[in-house]
Design a protein around this nucleic acid. Structure first.
Lengths: 343, 343
DNA sequence: TTGAAAGCGCTAACAA
DNA sequence: TTGTTAGCGCTTTCAA
């Protein structure tokens, strides 16, 4: 935005000898404007280099047509798919996006949300930071009735809609798949259990074991609060076990791949010695060897859905009092877990 | 932004029995306001739940304190590092970020930039889409004197500052490293040559060959316009060669890893049969086997620099008439290219 | 050190 | 179908 004088609707009005109100209406397809007037207006605007002033408009309408998006990290295939989905819907509906990453810190999350609040976003789409334990820090949003929708990393709260997959079931399915391949001693590598996604996957894992009469052994669960080098650390921990596991269910592909790579270096054969299942269906799953069995996570759809739900809410469309929307997941079987076929 | 009545400086003024002008000044530390008045104002604002209205302010000041960022894709470690760097500086300086991805399409790039222009961003940070051949579509920005800074994927233009690494030299260094490891038949896998980064890396490759008396063979150069499955396609092409190469220089780690994985499946040993060097120093380089030799690309620093340069420009600080800023790169030697030591 | 007043550009209620 | 008018909330010039 520069400091030169802008072309305003008044300039157009003067040039056309009509009122500014008419220009304003003509520019936005108001039904009560004659076709030719509209045409004249649009042409003049074009020709004079008119640019709609969002600030004046937002100030007047008390609405910004901007949606804030806060995610833990931008650099995963999953997140970038989600954002592409959000972008698509938002653009379609004439909304802008304000995007930022919390880098897994509640503090930065709050700072980002506050900045967005000050920028008067109409609504927010948030995937929570790993160490976020509640949503008290969002109270000021609720008070101002700014809609907040969570996706992926959510927190159950009556004020918010959550969009997720059934992480419990997905964890269950992944573990069950390993059991069906003959695994009995299954390690689970997970993320911070404060996060619903990791907690639920962990519970699914436990339930699958139970349903197949396998005793849950906390020693086999490797959780890392700070997700740094989880895969590698986990591999080392596994290599130090007196009795090696025969299966591993990892709650994300990045860790799965890192772990697998480390195990392979130590001479362990995948899947013959240890079968591995990851989570997310990141493209990396097909870059390593053997290809990684994983749980497909519909990121793009999740983004679309999050955005359209929020926009419906903003438009006061009946959102059916819904509180949680669950998307479908799917176990994608690849080589890293196929004991049965290889033997 | 909701529709309830906001608390304004007038409300504060009334409550304190002073003028709105004084409140406005007090709120932003104007030097000519008495300390205690200021204190009263700040306290009242706090207590009444006052929230600064960016729109009124932007409208009045004709400045938004917002920076637009347009990148080809969000989902790379590199980009997310760059953005983290930009965010850090921007937040420090009180700027907001508007981020979007062009998904490698000039059309979407232009649409995104236009939206940002309409949102009256103060300046723009852009990494160009793969098929962008010139910057004519940005002319309207130059006319309005909105500063535009390119990073990574740049286009030489007197209107813009570019922030890059020396891709030519980096390509040269990477290739030279392979030559020093004894490679003579070196394949180059690159991206769209319209893009400076890929064109320069390719030229560096050529020059390194020439300097070491190796004839440049266009048959050994595999370029993909649409970066989809480049690594895999390249591997297949390599496997079909009558004479296998002994070295590969790939212009990004993702393709390098995909290619390596495919070659390994075909029974080719890395680095014994073929040495590989990638580009970017993506974490994936240390997830695969063997670890990938690559060129370190300082993403975070690039982001910081891009943001601070832009902000200086916005503040009319002398930017020394600079046109191009070059950051340091570094070849990180790992196992995938070490023929000498292994033999 | 403070206040009055004008105006940034747009929209919408109301009137014609 | 179009025009009049009154702000949206803030900043800043000028005056006191």
């Amino acid at each position: 935005m520069n400091t030169k004088k802008e072309v305003t609707i008044y300039d157009i009005a003067k040039a056309l000898n009509i009122s500014a109100a008419t220009v304003s209406r003509g520019l936005k397809d108001h039904p009560a404007i004659k076709k030719e007037t509209k045409k004249k207006i649009v042409e003049a605007a074009q020709q004079m280099g008119y640019q709609h002033n969002i600030f004046a408009s937002s100030l007047r309408k008390r609405k910004t047509n901007t949606i804030g998006v806060v995610v833990p990290h931008l650099n995963s295939y999953f997140m970038s798919s989600v954002i592409a989905g959000i972008e698509k819907v938002a653009n379609q509906e004439g909304y802008n996006l304000l995007i930022s990453q919390s880098l897994e810190s509640v503090k930065k999350e709050l700072a980002n949300v506050t900045t967005m609040y000050n920028s008067r976003v109409d609504g927010l789409l948030v995937s929570l930071a790993g160490d976020t334990q509640n949503v008290d820090h969002f109270d000021f949003l609720f008070k101002k009735e700014i809609p907040l929708i969570f996706f992926d990393r959510v927190f159950e709260d009556p004020n918010c809609i959550s969009i997720i997959i059934n992480n419990f079931q997905a964890g269950y399915d992944a573990t069950k798949h390993l059991i069906e391949q003959g695994c009995r001693r299954i390690v689970h590598i997970g993320g911070n259990l404060t996060s619903n996604v990791y907690a639920d996957r962990h519970e699914g894992y436990k339930k699958a074991l139970k349903d197949h009469q396998i005793t849950y052994d906390p020693e086999l669960v490797i959780i890392d609060i700070r997700g740094g080098q989880l895969g590698i650390k986990a591999a080392q921990q596994i290599l130090n076990m007196e009795l090696l596991p025969d299966g591993i269910f990892t709650a994300n592909d990045t860790s799965a791949v890192a772990c697998m790579s480390e195990l392979k270096r130590a001479g362990i054969r995948i899947p013959q010695d240890v079968a591995i299942v990851g989570f997310n269906d990141d493209p990396i799953a097909k870059l390593i060897e053997p290809f990684l069995t994983t749980v497909h996570y519909p990121g793009y759809e999740m983004g679309e859905l999050a955005a359209s739900t929020l926009i419906n809410r903003l438009n006061k469309l009946p959102v059916n009092n819904l509180n949680t929307i669950v998307l479908r997941h799917e176990v994608i079987v690849r080589e890293s877990s196929l004991k049965k076929i290889i033997y």
